[in-house]
Design a binder for these strands. Structure first.
Lengths: 255, 255
DNA sequence: GTGGTTACCTGATCTGGATCAAGTCGCCGC
DNA sequence: GCGGCGACTTGATCCAGATCAGGTAACCAC
C-alpha cells in the first residue's frame, strides 16, 4: 500500500524535551472532536490509558498526499491535528466530487464504516498532521467507554445532517454564504478567528464542493465584495457583515 | 406532545390467537435492519430479552400522520414494519425539502442523535406500522451487545454515504434512473419484486427529493417509457431494461 | 348529473448558472 | 530581464431545467 503514512505511536518518547509526553497534546486535544474523551473528564483510568495507547500520531503529510484512498480497507479514522484535509470521490467518468473539508479537531473517515472500505479519498491540502484511531479497536473500546460510543454516534449523526444541507436546491449566493458562515463557525469552535478565514483550498475545490462552476464562485465572491459583505485578498477572506451573510445562508444552515 | 403515537408494548398479549406473541414478527424481523440482532443469531439470552422488551410496536399511522416532528426531543428511532415513510425539512421560506423515503425494514430517525432533537419531520405516506426503539435505552444496550453498536454505526455510516450521492451535480436523467435503481435494489433486499415498483409517493415528492421540478419528473418518466426503459401506469412502474437504467445511474450509485 | 379538488401531463417561454474564450496576476526557473 | 505555468478573473454565449399556462383524468360530495 504505497500511500499508507508512517506512524509514530504517541506513547513513545519524543525528541522535544519541553513536551510532557505529547507535544501540544493538551492544547490540541481540548479542541479535538474526541477531546472530552481523550482528556478524560472523569472517565475510568484504565479505559483512558487504553485510549491513549490506541491513538497514533502520523508523520506530517504534505499537500496532495493521501490519508486514505477509495477502496482501501477501512481500518482507522483520523482526527486532524494541524492543516486541512479534503475528501473526494472520483466517478466513472473521472469527474472529481469533493465531499468535505476538515479542519483541525475534526474527524475524517467515519463514512468507511459501512462496507468496511473507504468510499472516498482523503487528501491533505497543505502540511497536515493527524491522530489515527484504529478500527475495530476503537469500536471495541466504545463498548467499554460509553462516552466514546456517544461521541461516535453523535459525530456520524452530525455528518448525516450536514450532508443533507448541501443536497438542497439553493442558489449560488446561498451556497457560498453558507459555506463561509459554516467555515467561520467551525473555525470559531476550534478557537480561531471567526472573521478572518484562510481558505486553504483552491477556488475550483470550493466550486466543486458547492456544485458550482469555478467562474461562478469568482463572480459571487466579487459581488459579495462589491456589496461589502466580505473582503477578499487572494485566499484570505475577511467576513465584514457576518449578520448579512448569516441571513443569506439561513435556509441552508438552519438545523 | 400532540403527535406522539400511541404505543403497544410487544410483550403484551395480542388479540389474534395464531401469532406466537408477535404477529408476523419473524417474517418482518428477518428483513429488518436490526434483524440479526432481534432474531438473536447466537447472542446472549439476557441482552436479547432486554432488546425485545425495549421494542414497542406502534398502532398504525395513516397517510399524512407524523412519526416525529422537527424540533421534538430525540427519544427513539423507528424501524418501518409496513408502509412507507418520508422525512422532510421545512425551511424558513416554508419550502419543503424531502430528505428520504423509508421502506419496510429500514430505520428512521438516526439523524436526531446529534443535537438530541429531530432535525426533520417524518411522515407516513400510507398506512404505516413501526417498531419503536427508545433512546438512550438502545444506546445503553449497544454497549452491552456489540452487534447492536456495530449495526447502529454501520447504518449511520451508510446514511452518510447515501446523502452524499444526491448531493452531486447529476442530470435529471441520471437522478431519476438512480432513484429507480436504488428503490429496486432496496425492494429486492427486503424480498419484494425488483422490477415492479409501486411508488407510494407523489410525483412532486419524487421531484422534490431529486431537486427537480415535478414537470421534469413527468417528462423524464415519459421519455424513459418511450425509450422502453420502463412502463408507467399511474404510480406503478415496471423496470423493463434494468441494465440500461443501471448504466444511466452508474455515476450516481457507484459506491 | 355538476362542481370542486387533487394529481398529473404537456407545450411555450424564461433564466441561473454552465460553458467557452480571453484575459490578468503572481511565481518560479533560468 | 523573459517565458511558461497555474490560479484566478471577467465577459459573451448557451442550454438544461425551472417556471408559466393550460390542459385531462380520476375521485368525491351532494
Amino acid at each position: 500500500m504505497v500511500h499508507v503514512v508512517s506512524l509514530q505511536p504517541s506513547f513513545l518518547p519524543r525528541p522535544s524535551p519541553d513536551d510532557q509526553g505529547d507535544g501540544d497534546a493538551l492544547r490540541f486535544c481540548s479542541t479535538c472532536a474526541f477531546g472530552r474523551a481523550c482528556l478524560g473528564d472523569g472517565y475510568d483510568k484504565q479505559a483512558l490509558e487504553d485510549l491513549h495507547c490506541l491513538v497514533e500520531h502520523t508523520a506530517p503529510l504534505h499537500a496532495g498526499d493521501e490519508v486514505f484512498r477509495y477502496g482501501q480497507p477501512f481500518n482507522a479514522i483520523y482526527a486532524v491535528r494541524a492543516g486541512m484535509v479534503k475528501t473526494r470521490r472520483i466517478d466513472e467518468q473521472g469527474r472529481e466530487q469533493i465531499l468535505g473539508f476538515f479542519l483541525p479537531g475534526e474527524l475524517v473517515g467515519l463514512n468507511g464504516l459501512y462496507s468496511s472500505r473507504y468510499p472516498c479519498d482523503a487528501v491533505a491540502l497543505d502540511t497536515v498532521t493527524l491522530c489515527r484511531f484504529a478500527f475495530p479497536a476503537l469500536s471495541v473500546m466504545a463498548t467499554r467507554l460509553p462516552a466514546i460510543q456517544q461521541t461516535l454516534l453523535q459525530l456520524m449523526s452530525k455528518d448525516i445532517v450536514n450532508a443533507a444541507l448541501l443536497a438542497g436546491d439553493y442558489s449560488a449566493d446561498e451556497r457560498l454564504a453558507a459555506f463561509l458562515v459554516n467555515l467561520s463557525d467551525r473555525f470559531a469552535e476550534r478557537g480561531y478567528s471567526p472573521t478572518r478565514l484562510y481558505l486553504m483550498m483552491s477556488r475550483s475545490d470550493i466550486a466543486n464542493y458547492l456544485r458550482l462552476a469555478p467562474e461562478t464562485v469568482s463572480r459571487v465572491l466579487r459581488r459579495f465584495q462589491d456589496e461589502a459583505l466580505i473582503a477578499v485578498e487572494k485566499r484570505e477572506v475577511t467576513l465584514i457583515a457576518l449578520d448579512r451573510l448569516q441571513h443569506l445562508a439561513r435556509c441552508v444552515l438552519q438545523s
